[in-house]
Nucleic acid binder design. Structure first.
Lengths: 162, 162
DNA sequence: ATAACTGCAAAACATTTGCATACAG
DNA sequence: CTGTATGCAAATGTTTTGCAGTTAT
């Protein structure tokens, strides 16, 4: 996931602008900066990471404003929030990005994204059975990746330890 | 989900006892009481609920011990932990209970349990593709239930969404 | 002008930790 | 006896809140 091309980024800013207008909220440089910061990273970020990153880039913001603005961005569906384990919430941009689920390595905390069409079917069937209007879902698979770089990897047969 | 029959409860206690012994941990009345308390409720409970419930029943425990013991119960797979939204973790007994996922009403916070065999397939396929050893998963569907008792229910006939 | 926004620091909340005391093995 | 578990209270980490001052509209 890399950063968005210029024109799409312009589109995203326009969406946020329109949302603020519709809600009679103000456009501030802080809000704009926070939107840009989330979209500038291709990764999953938490509120504090954003706060620090903005600070480093001369953007004067407070944590409170970061949290507030993330709430707004959630409301206009420009970002999504994930709760992995009991850690802080992670945010990810949602515009023009595929709907996906996550695979999490318990050893190195690495995140992988995947999508399986069968989930759509599961969601529809459950909604039908329970008389629910399902708005969204969260599926996380936890386990152990087999990458070389992964610590705590169960060593293969011949791996002498120093 | 009602409470377990006597003999199964005895089995559960035996499992915990064996686990403690294997790990050279002590058997204390607090630990026993906490195990019983989780299994006594058929519902999802959080640590503080358990703490308060034990207190009410003359069981002298501290929050720290509740948290510690829940950790032990997780390690021996007698309970599972769920993270719904950003709230505190919820715990649920795991012995002799079907593996299931959750459907959560965003209006009344009611929890429903379901199971769809397709998930097994999804899990296996993703594990295969990514070279992962998947140990467990967490699938939550969020939406709006249609129950009479549910607050925030869209009133009257179905209103079309903009 | 004026109502909304910001930053700060304090509050809230769930969970963890340090340490003196109690008690299981 | 001995080391582990406990209870308490204080510490932690994340998120929210109250308020005085600032700013977009």
């Amino acid at each position: 996931m890399s950063s968005l091309p210029q024109e799409q980024m312009a589109e995203v800013r326009a969406i946020f602008k329109a949302f603020l207008k519709r809600r009679n909220l103000r456009q501030t440089s802080e809000r704009a900066a926070i939107l840009d910061a989330v979209y500038a990273t291709g990764d999953h970020v938490d509120a504090d990471e954003l706060y620090l990153r903005l600070r480093q880039n001369d953007q004067q913001v407070s944590r409170a404003t970061v949290y507030n603005t993330l709430e707004l961005l959630l409301e206009c569906d420009l970002i999504v929030r994930h709760q992995f384990g009991k850690n802080q919430a992670k945010f990810e941009r949602a515009y023009s990005y595929w709907q996906h689920d996550h695979l999490i390595c318990l050893d190195c905390n690495e995140l992988f994204e995947f999508c399986d069409p069968r989930l759509q079917g599961v969601q529809e069937m459950v909604a039908d059975i329970y008389g629910f209007e399902v708005t969204h879902h969260s599926l996380n698979l936890y386990g152990h990746c087999q990458r070389e770089a992964c610590p705590n990897r169960p060593e293969e047969e011949a791996s002498p330890q120093p």
